[in-house]
Write a protein that binds this DNA or RNA. Structure first.
Length: 221
DNA sequence: CACCAGGCAAGTA
DNA sequence: TACTTGCATGGT
């Protein structure tokens, strides 16, 4: 691959997605806190289920750090039920809220004043906040120029031979950040477009119902 | 029924 | 380092 080739490919990919789908307007959520909570709650979960949970919290006036922190964990878990993994996520939301309280006095605006290079490692120390969730919070709730990589990103890039099968999260993130201008709106739109493409055209694996070995023993996963 | 959904941490070899 | 497993509801 010649010099600048990957950059051309990535910019070409973005152009094609933009042409096909137009602006996606991500992230859904009215406040930075709602965006951050959505990032945690949507881990390995359909957004439709997440939207239900967020709507419920909003209806009860619970979409603020204090109210959520004062809610007993079991109560919080009950409200997260529709999104699945609700016990896990109740703990993870609480971990994030504790961090927000101690680090920025419950203020997402104050948190946003920190530099990306300082804040990203700090977010990654929170139990339950991995690289994708951290980058989602940074890019969409705090408007920091970090690229979000997810399962769709990996699937699309590897299926089209832009990366190898063993490319890590950090490698993919660096790939985008090294070859694109450091612009928050571009990062936001590009990731959203990749998800759009993935949902519609890049399924995880072939359908097993048509497989000739379909009647053999196999795991559901 | 099988498969999927905008991951992560903990355990094992 | 590179797998594997648990976590769980709701839609197609």
């Amino acid at each position: 691959m010649g010099p600048g080739r990957l950059g051309e490919l990535l910019r070409g990919l973005y152009g094609k997605l933009w042409e096909a789908f137009g602006p996606q307007g991500w992230w859904p959520g009215e406040t930075p806190l709602e965006v951050a909570l959505g990032a945690i709650i949507t881990q390995n979960t359909n957004w439709q289920n997440v939207a239900r949970v967020l709507a419920g919290l909003k209806a009860e006036g619970l979409l603020n750090p204090r109210a959520l922190r004062e809610l007993p964990q079991e109560e919080l878990a009950r409200r997260l039920k529709a999104a699945g993994y609700y016990n896990l996520k109740a703990q993870r939301v609480r971990n994030f809220l504790t961090f927000l309280a101690q680090r920025a006095k419950d203020s997402m605006a104050l948190l946003a004043q920190e530099d990306l290079e300082v804040l990203r490692p700090a977010l990654l120390t929170i139990k339950g906040i991995g690289p994708e969730t951290a980058d989602s919070i940074l890019l969409y709730a705090l408007n920091k120029p970090t690229f979000v990589v997810d399962a769709y990103t990996f699937r699309i890039l590897s299926r089209h031979y832009l990366i190898g099968e063993t490319c890590s999260y950090e490698e993919m993130r660096q790939l985008f950040m090294d070859h694109l201008p450091e612009e928050v709106p571009l990062y936001q739109e590009f990731h959203a477009l990749l998800v759009r493409l993935g949902k519609e055209y890049c399924r995880p694996r072939p359908r097993c119902s048509a497989c000739p070995l379909n009647d053999w023993p196999h795991r559901g996963e």
